[in-house]
Design a binder for these strands. Structure first.
Lengths: 227, 227
DNA sequence: CGCGATTTTGATCAATGTCAAAGGTGGTGG
DNA sequence: CCACCACCTTTGACATTGATCAAAATCGCG
């Protein structure tokens, strides 16, 4: 279940976990600037990683989906450089930080895996950055939604590929894209009126993948195909 | 000289390097989407890491300063997910990719260092993302310039802290901040007219650090102090 | 001295934010 | 089962930021 690491090492890793925890939607896994004594493997549910800015704004840095490994940052002992809020009910697997350091020291493959993981997260962050900086609202939205679809599908290939549960509020989307929820709403309507997609009560239906991908300038990293 | 790794390991690392290379300003260290057979330790000069977008726009993801370690990404054998262009004349130390993998396998401390490095770069990317998404142009500019100052000073504590060489064109700044060079120019003038700073022919003079930091909502990660 | 790249400026326009209010929706307790 | 409440979505009028286009001025360099 604890999946950032490959199958063979699972028993080793499991010996180090200190248990699971369940949190309700809306609660904080850890807060921005707080100390945090554990690392987390997200087993179920969605989590928003965010920063708070003086202006009172909240910037969502990334959405964490099941399988994500949360809480590792350069200074393991220092205050968290971002917060983590549960968007749905969430289940995590816990690793005490101190024990995790020992684990890494003993198993270099895990350290290598961690480096790769962080490099992947960096690519995602760069995607997100480029999306926000270079695209107007409709492209931004299209790109984000396609990216989320791609992630969901990678884990659940059995599901309808164009009919997915995306447990986000229009406000969450706005906080992720650097837009206002009002404008997200307007843009979402435009996409709907153009027959590209329908996003209603946390359910996304993609009606025209081709045009949407074109609008988003989107290529799926995993496949190299447009969505 | 090859500094991503700590002093003690230097001789080990140096045995693996395959030489140095000098590139002129304006040349590409590696191109977006190209294959690349080496990894680089930036010894001297500034490099822009960028992405190209359909619209013809160029998004600068980060500026690499001396000491940066360039080219490591999740798929070491795959095409580069970003490009790297020299902003000044540049000197890099080369590591063949294949040999670097061997090096990591033999020296787990280096792998751990790499994970930390990538985690640091992720924090920088998140800063950049937040800056672009949440702040209007003046704050964005102030934030970027203070961040660059902070980095330069970390390496050169002996220099005048408010009088620095920043080898960037207004166009580079625009590409980094998701603004137009025209608007960067206008905003830069406003900051100058307010007596906050002067940026002329690649030389930055900070006149009012306090007000600038306030405008930027900037706190130095290294010190926790405002600049 | 002249040329390409960069900076500067002005006029105008489009994209997005702000403010305010009205509808919806789902969940909870009575 | 209904009513209420908090939260979310939707809409409209208006303000503002930043983009676009075009041209002039300046700078660095051969």
């Amino acid at each position: 279940m604890c999946q950032p690491f490959d199958g063979e090492r699972l028993s080793i890793v499991q010996a180090f976990k200190s248990g699971d925890r369940v949190l309700p939607a809306g609660s904080q896994l850890y807060g921005f600037g707080e100390a945090c004594s554990e690392l987390y493997n997200l087993l179920d549910g969605w989590v928003a990683l965010y920063r708070l800015v003086d202006s009172g704004r909240c910037q969502i840095l990334d959405f964490a989906l099941p399988g994500a490994f949360l809480g590792y940052q350069p200074d393991l002992a220092g205050p968290m450089l971002h917060g983590a809020q549960c968007l749905t009910d969430v289940t995590v697997c816990l690793f005490p930080r101190q024990r995790f350091v020992d684990l890494l020291a003993k198993h270099p493959e895990l350290t290598a895996r961690l480096a790769t993981l962080k490099a992947e997260e960096l690519v995602v962050a760069h995607d997100h950055l480029t999306n926000i900086a270079c695209r107007p609202a409709p492209g931004r939205l299209a790109n984000l939604l396609l990216e989320l679809c791609s992630r969901v599908r990678r884990r659940h290939p059995e599901l309808e590929p164009h009919d997915l549960e995306i447990p986000l509020t229009q406000n969450n989307i706005a906080d992720a894209l650097g837009l206002t929820s009002v404008y997200v709403n307007i843009t979402l309507r435009q996409l709907r009126e153009e027959g590209l997609l329908v996003f209603k009560s946390r359910h996304l239906r993609i009606l025209d993948p081709e045009r949407l991908a074109e609008l988003a300038d989107f290529t799926d990293v995993a496949t190299g195909d447009v969505a």
